[in-house]
Design a protein around this nucleic acid. Structure first.
Lengths: 149, 149
DNA sequence: GTCCATGCAAACTGTTTGCACGCGC
DNA sequence: GCGCGTGCAAACAGTTTGCATGGAC
């Protein structure tokens, strides 16, 4: 654990940033959780180990870690962001419109889509978000409200 | 034009809603634009034709039209939503991280991904959002800031 | 010791809501 | 005329920022 933090420290130093206890802690919290935490949840979990930490620091650190590529930000549709430590493999999300349950999945076909678009439009794609919505197994019979005509 | 509004009126009546001038106007604005407007932009455009319209009405109407399936809401990552009148064909988005340019594209392979996940997880998928980010042709040489390590 | 990072509180943006009036039906 | 929809302003949620203090290096 501590040797991985040393590597981390070096990455920070190279870019003129400091590895503070708060930044360590927030990264720990994200790595320890395999859920998609929002800023408030990260804040609550961090407070358990550092009661004085502030929500502003959580936001600043999440932005920083995102810029450095250590965490990913997802907007799954509820007006606030979710964060998670980066995995090696890309993965995507399904969200149930009824109960909010999130299912993660992989979809290798996305790489074909990326390649096609890159070639056709001459763009360089750095990130793909695929977000499916619908009704999970448990909610399917009750999909009453707020749906297309 | 007016006969299409009559059809619209009927859809509203069936669900106990009223087709007000504001609702018409907002739908007009969205249909007239082939861009992705945010609520503020819809508000500004609507004010040209109805100076007394309020931003609250714009939000309420956008929510309503989304629930009725007439418009789609996109969260392309900047902390506010974009809206557009529904097209028949599904389409997806690429956003340039540098200049914000949006390219729309189709990706028929998505239907395979949808089918796979539905079968594997037993979910019913009603909507797919694919959002690619990266650098457009013009911005590729200057992709300096804020990128993964 | 230097200067970046933090905590606090206030500001800010995008969105929602309570209420009395107005308009579609 | 009944009741949904509107405009207005205030409230709200999530996030950002200014400033003085504190901690990493």
């Amino acid at each position: 654990m501590s040797e991985s933090r040393d590597m981390l420290r070096e990455v920070f130093r190279e870019t003129g940033r400091r590895l503070t206890s708060q930044r360590c802690l927030i990264l720990d919290v994200l790595e320890a959780s395999d859920e998609h935490l929002d800023a408030e949840a990260v804040y609550e979990l961090a407070k358990d180990r550092a009661p004085d930490i502030s929500l502003a620091t959580v936001y600043r650190t999440l932005t920083l870690l995102r810029e450095m590529g250590f965490v990913e930000e997802h907007r799954l549709g509820e007006g606030h962001c979710h964060y998670e430590a980066v995995h090696e493999e890309p993965h995507y999300h399904f969200t149930c419109r009824k109960c909010g349950k999130v299912i993660e999945f992989d979809a290798p076909l996305i790489s074909r889509i990326r390649r096609d678009l890159s070639q056709r439009e001459g763009v360089k794609i750095t990130k793909a978000h695929l977000h499916l919505t619908g009704y999970c197994r448990d909610c399917q019979d009750r999909e009453t409200s707020g749906d297309p005509v």
